[in-house]
Every structure is written in structure tokens, then in C-alpha cells.
Design a binder for these strands. Structure first.
Length: 553
DNA sequence: AAGGAAGGCGCC
DNA sequence: AAAGGGCGCCTTCCTT
């Protein structure tokens, strides 16, 4: 399949350079300003991979023009992956431009408009960068895995742009009704809603602190202590342990205050337009490969307000999430037959009980989370030896990742995404043994940092490979949805509107909802095969076809 | 006035 | 024996 490299020129013109299979230029088209969308639409009739510096700089305008692309290489994202991958010879990526590619940031429509050719991306040569990346990939120790990662990462960039373009269907009227029921009518700017004000009065009375502002953690802590309560912080979890009349109203105040500040009327004003919630998804925004988001808190849309996410008339939401993604990924990447056997159950934790590793589901969950996060709250520590005997490869993999991190080494995901190098005095010690003591901090402090980094690398390999599975799922699903039909632009077909780590939401015409649900499952199975080949690890989904997101699950 | 740290809490 | 991963974003509070 040919590739076409797009490059901005002066005055809004674009150069499109066609590369043949061997990477040599076989043609070049110069496009005057305004003609790019038409060119891309035509060229898409024959399979092509677009190569561009950064999807956020090209794709939103194409989508606005009604043009969808099948595949791309996002050089900014693939550069970032390759630069950190321990499977790659970094010398092959090095050039005068490398630092500029390292520094390149995605853009959002909210960014101040850049004047033409003032964008740092415009000083970069995408053809040269693409050649360096292809050479590095070809020479890497696992070119097939890395190539899959680069393709998935780039597909993710397309999905992210498409999800922002389409937006998550959001009924402001439903949301406002919910706010009014819980908080009272919208108050004038700067004052508390009636329900919150009443709760604040109750809190002040219970603590005999008539001037208290319950939003001030410091003042609240002092008031609690003056009332004779032995607390060191004001977290909800701490307050729940207390027996005092203030606890009820204070917890309710915190719950509703959180709703008001995070997803209240101001949030609606800022983020919901024309029936859609539009935030920006940031592929590769997290070092592990998970996505970040920007604007509106898309990574934490509370269950409380999900009733407002409602499909259009004649449309449905297909909501799908993977049960226990990360333990399943751990079973697959470690090749642990016993854990894969447990993962054959719809509930992996029940599978562990059935396999005799533990007595109860709760034990199973605590133990697995402990193994993946490095936590051992009492009970988990006692179960670990049994877990290690029963699942030697799975537990061995995360333990080795933790030890490597503690030694200051880089670890990597199944497909080759590398962890960051540790910084700080303890890491320098780890690398250069025998340095003078007392360089920075106490021995205890250094050990604390070392163990914390071990917990990070322990989790990195699992979280990061989980993110790779999810990217493959998403990329395959995107293409399946497109093929499901329709002739119109994206928003008239089934399309993705939300993605969060192990969960997707598809907005689809009613009559295609069941077909979408089936494709979501097939895409999950395909992702499992892409990452783990024939190794038998299942990724069962919970799939709901609903009018409102709140009805899923 | 602006910026950042800290406390806190929502999501996976 | 103990050891809790990754985010975004709100308000308060302090510094510059």
C-alpha cells in the first residue's frame, strides 16, 4: 500500500508526496489552500496510509469538511513511542531535528491560533523523520510487535479526533433537571445552591462553628478537632469512621458540593453545545500509553450525571466494557496457563476460586490488585505465596518488573513501549554503585523512592499492555463500524463517542445496534489474537444497548 | 494579579 | 513487616 506524506507550505498550500512500497517518492502533488479535503477524499478511494506530523494538526479540518481517512501514521506519536522503546537503536532516530520532534505538542482548537509557519511543526521534515522511523523499526529486536503498536497508536489518534468531532450525545435539559432536584434551583453566580447552604448550616451547628466555610479543608479540620474529634484529615473515608452528628450532613455536603463544582451548571455552560459534550482526548497522554483527556474531565464523568448522556431519537448507545482487563492481559503476556484458565470464566476472580487458588472472590480480587499495584493490605500479603505457587509466570512477571524498576532499569510492555528512566538521587545510586553516602536524603528516603518506582514499573507493564489491547480493540472496532454501513459522513453512521481505558460507547442508528454489539465483541476477540496469538486468553465483554449511558451495565 | 502546591475526589 | 498504579480538575491557601 502506498503512503502519502502531507506537508504544509506557505500560504495554506500543501505538498502531498506519494511514496511507493520501497519508500521512494513516486509523485508529488502541490495543493493550493482549500483543496486538501477534496484531494484526500479522492485519494481514499484506493487504499492509502497518510503520513503526517501530527493528527491534531490535520484531521479536525478534514472531518469538518466531511472527509474520513482509513489509516495514518502520526509521526509525533510514533516518534514518542520509538524514542522511549528499549527495543530500538536510538542512534537510528537521531538527527538535527530530533529534539524538535521530541518537543512537539498536540494542538486543540482552544489553543491560540498559530500564524502560518509559526507552528514549530512547520519547521520539520516529515519525509526524513518517516525514513528514520522506518529504519529504526526494521532494525529493532521485535519489528512486528512495534509495527503493530505504531499502527494502533496512529489509529487511536484518528479515533480521538473523530470522537471530539462527533461529541458524546448530552441532554442539557436532563442534566439541569438532575441538578435542580439534588441542589435546588440554579443560584446567582457566587452563592451556594439552597440545598448546599442548608447543609452548610447543619454542619456549622453540629460543630458549633458559626463562621465555618466547609469548603476550606484547613478550617474544617480545625473545627472537627475543636469539636473533640481525633482526625488528621477531612477525607470522606476518614469521616465515615466517626460517630458524631456532623458526619451525615458533612458527607452529604461533600457529595453535592463535588457535583456542583465538577459537573454543575458551569460545566454545562462550558462543555455542552448543541446536544454534545466535546472534550479532547489525548492519545499517548500517559506514559503507560493510556489516553489522557483535556477539558471537561472526560476521564471522570461521574455515574451521577450519566443519565444525561442520551442517544438521539431513533439512535441507541452501545456501551461495552471488558471485565478485569488487566489480569487477563497479565495472563496473556506472561503465558500463564493457570491464570488463563481462570480467565476463561466470565468473572476471572470466580475463576480463581474455582481453580482452587483462593477461597473467596474478595480474596482473589485483593490479591490480584495487590500483585499488579504492589499493594499488600494485610490479607493480600498472606495470600501472595499461594498466588505465586498457583500462577508462577504471571506473578513472576510483575515481580521481575518491580525488581528491574528498583534497579533503575527500563521495563517495557508486550509491544515495546518503554518506561521512563527514573530520576533522582536513588536512581543515580542504583546505576553508579559506590557513590558517597548522604548525597541527597536519608537511606530510608531513598529506599522509599526506590520501592515506589518499583511499584510504578510493576504496574507499567500491565497497565501499558492493557492500553495496547484496548488500542487494538478500538482501532479494529473503528473500521468495523465504518463497514457496517451507511453512505454518509461519520455522524450518520455508527460511530465511537467515548473511550476510557477498557470501555467504549458507540452512538448508532437503532436498527444497527445489535450489529454494533456483535462487532464490538468481534473486535475484542481480534485484539486478543493480535496481542497474544493462539494463547487462549479470553476478553469477555459486558455489552448494553441502551438509550442512556446510566442504564448500561 | 497570576501561578503553583496541597487537599480532596471523580474515573479506570 | 510493610509495601497502593494511572489520570483531570476543583477550591483554598500561599508565594512571587
Amino acid at each position: 500500500m502506498n503512503r502519502v506524506v502531507l506537508e504544509r507550505r506557505a500560504e495554506g498550500a500543501v505538498a502531498a508526496r506519494e511514496l511507493g512500497d520501497d519508500g521512494t517518492t513516486v509523485g508529488e502533488t502541490r495543493l493550493p489552500a482549500g483543496s486538501l479535503a477534496g484531494f484526500v477524499r479522492e485519494r481514499e478511494r484506493v487504499p492509502v496510509r497518510w503520513v503526517w506530523d501530527d493528527t491534531t494538526r490535520w484531521y479536525p479540518a478534514l472531518l469538518d469538511a466531511g472527509v474520513r481517512v482509513e489509516r495514518c501514521t502520526d509521526l509525533r506519536l510514533t516518534h514518542a513511542v520509538l524514542r522511549r522503546s528499549p527495543l530500538v537503536d536510538q542512534a537510528l532516530l537521531t538527527a538535527g531535528e530530533t529534539a524538535a520532534w521530541d518537543a512537539l505538542q498536540p494542538v486543540t482548537p482552544a489553543d491560540p491560533a498559530l500564524f502560518p509557519l509559526e507552528d514549530p511543526a512547520d519547521g520539520l521534515d516529515p519525509v526524513a523523520e518517516h525514513e528514520r522511523q522506518q529504519a529504526a523499526l526494521a532494525a529493532s529486536t521485535h519489528p512486528a510487535r512495534l509495527a503493530l503498536l505504531l499502527a494502533a497508536e496512529s489509529s487511536g489518534a484518528l479515533v480521538a479526533a473523530e470522537m471530539t468531532h462527533a461529541g458524546l450525545p448530552w441532554r442539557a435539559d436532563v442534566h439541569e433537571r438532575l441538578l435542580t432536584e439534588l441542589l435546588g434551583p440554579r443560584p446567582p453566580h457566587g452563592s451556594r445552591p439552597a440545598v448546599l447552604e442548608a447543609l452548610a448550616r447543619e454542619v456549622r451547628a453540629a460543630l458549633r462553628a458559626p463562621e465555618l466555610n466547609p469548603d476550606s479543608p484547613g478550617a474544617l479540620l480545625r473545627a472537627l478537632q475543636s469539636a473533640g474529634l481525633a482526625v488528621e484529615d477531612t477525607r470522606s473515608w476518614t469521616l465515615e469512621q466517626l460517630d458524631h452528628p456532623v458526619v451525615g450532613p458533612l458527607l452529604e455536603y461533600k457529595r453535592l458540593s463535588r457535583l456542583l463544582t465538577a459537573n454543575g451548571w458551569a460545566w454545562l455552560d462550558a462543555w455542552v453545545r448543541e446536544g454534545r459534550f466535546r472534550s479532547w482526548f489525548v492519545p499517548g497522554g500517559v506514559v503507560t500509553g493510556r489516553w489522557a483527556s483535556s477539558g471537561g474531565g472526560a476521564l471522570s464523568v461521574p455515574v451521577q450525571v450519566r443519565p444525561a448522556a442520551v442517544a438521539d431519537d431513533g439512535w441507541r448507545l452501545v456501551v461495552a466494557d471488558v471485565a478485569q482487563l488487566e489480569p487477563r492481559v497479565l495472563a496473556g503476556m506472561s503465558g500463564d496457563d493457570a491464570m488463563a484458565e481462570a480467565a476463561r470464566a466470565a468473572d476471572l476472580y470466580e475463576g480463581m476460586v474455582a481453580g482452587g487458588a483462593v477461597e473467596t472472590r474478595t480474596q482473589a480480587k485483593v490479591a490480584i490488585l495487590g500483585a499488579m499495584y504492589g499493594a499488600t493490605r494485610g490479607g493480600s500479603g498472606r495470600i501472595m505465596p499461594r498466588l505465586t505457587r498457583r500462577y508462577p509466570r504471571a506473578i513472576g512477571l510483575v515481580e521481575e518488573a518491580a525488581r528491574a524498576g528498583e534497579r533503575g532499569e527500563v521495563v517495557h510492555t508486550l509491544l515495546g513501549r518503554g518506561s521512563p528512566r527514573p530520576t533522582g538521587a536513588w536512581a543515580e545510586r542504583a546505576v553508579a554503585l559506590g557513590e558517597p553516602a548522604e548525597v541527597a536524603g536519608s537511606r530510608e528516603e531513598r529506599d522509599r523512592h526506590r520501592r515506589a518506582w518499583g511499584r510504578f514499573t510493576r504496574n507499567f507493564v500491565v497497565q501499558g499492555t492493557g492500553a495496547e489491547w484496548a488500542l487494538c480493540w478500538l482501532a479494529d472496532l473503528r473500521n468495523r463500524l465504518w463497514r457496517l454501513g451507511g453512505a454518509g459522513p461519520l455522524q450518520q453512521r455508527p460511530h465511537l463517542v467515548f473511550f476510557l481505558h477498557d470501555e467504549v460507547v458507540v452512538h448508532t442508528p437503532d436498527h444497527l445496534a445489535d450489529a454494533v454489539a456483535e462487532e464490538v465483541r468481534r473486535a475484542a476477540a481480534a485484539a486478543g489474537r493480535l496481542l497474544f496469538g493462539a494463547f487462549p486468553v479470553d476478553f469477555p465483554l459486558d455489552v448494553s444497548v441502551v438509550a442512556s449511558w446510566a442504564d448500561a451495565g
